[in-house]
Write a protein that binds this DNA or RNA. Sequence first.
DNA 1: ACCTGAACACCGTTCAAGT
DNA 2: ACCTGAACACCGTTCAAGT
Lengths: 186, 186
Amino acid sequence: MPVPWAAVALTRTAVVDTALEILRESGLPGMSMRTLAGRLHVQPSALYWHVPSKQALLTAVAERILATMGAVGAAETAGAELRVVATALRTAVTAYPDGAEIVALGLAAGAENPVADVVAETCRRHGLEGRASGWTTALTAFVLGLSLEQQTHHNLSVADPSTPPGSFDARFEEGLDALLAGPASA
Amino acid sequence: MPVPWAAVALTRTAVVDTALEILRESGLPGMSMRTLAGRLHVQPSALYWHVPSKQALLTAVAERILATMGAVGAAETAGAELRVVATALRTAVTAYPDGAEIVALGLAAGAENPVADVVAETCRRHGLEGRASGWTTALTAFVLGLSLEQQTHHNLSVADPSTPPGSFDARFEEGLDALLAGPASA
DNA sequence: ACCTGAACACCGTTCAAGT
DNA sequence: ACCTGAACACCGTTCAAGT
């Protein structure tokens, strides 16, 4: 008969699920292989049967976070569409504590970037084919760079409440405005 | 009389100097308070007299890295000047292993961003006053985001040589081209 | 096939005690 | 004032042994 503290079978999927759960509650520092194992009522070493390393686990977590980036529709101008893409990525990575750091690691590890397809489609539709990879890189790096600073700043504020606040939403809009206007226009 | 293995007095400056030295040789994972203390021929706990925490030490290291960003001169167009600023920041942060991560942490901790002054001057000279903070955020986040991915990718390649290479210099130029052209032009 | 138990080789930080 | 020595509370990972 099933016992209450053995709620789920220990599979790779369950491990990643629980990792995301802990990430949401405690952030990346709270997500150790030991706390993860404890939540699953298993020894830390048991995790290594389902996942080769913490690195690989984090890449899987990154892919899950990126998968929450919903489809984005067409808009009047290329700039408007690129703005929507950037905002969607930012929403996805900031939905979890330390999401930017994990996604940055995941992309470096070779995770597929969902921004690429959307930007390619936008560029095709607006006669900017040659710039698809350039805009993918520009928007992804911008969003991850700023979100990383924001989430790091948040973590520091928690550790030291005397830290002055930062207005990252406003800076995101300002930065995006500049970037989508180009340096030719005031 | 001075003994050869006590080369320098243990000051905050010497601690930061040695931290940068180890960073250059072994990257961030190699820069533990223990290895740092060992290099200085002192107990790990001794460092805490000169530096309140590793966090603070890393912020000081970030400020040193940012201080290597040389002055950038005027150019014909605003776009050309912004390109030079972005390239200068990239050169500075990629000069050390894990420099992007450390600088991102430093900026989040409140370190002064040298890009701000240069961009403000550029915007003033080219009639873009309202966009100074926007361009500062855009360029800084873009450069740090891409450099972070590059250096993380490099670390993963060292750990696992089967990792496919990435052409980050080319992606930097492409991204910058797109960003400085704006989505209106092909 | 899948997990336990114990160990290895590390971390950052604190703090009484020395000088 | 400045440093040692020892400890505290952690890490990720490995591996023989169990079932």
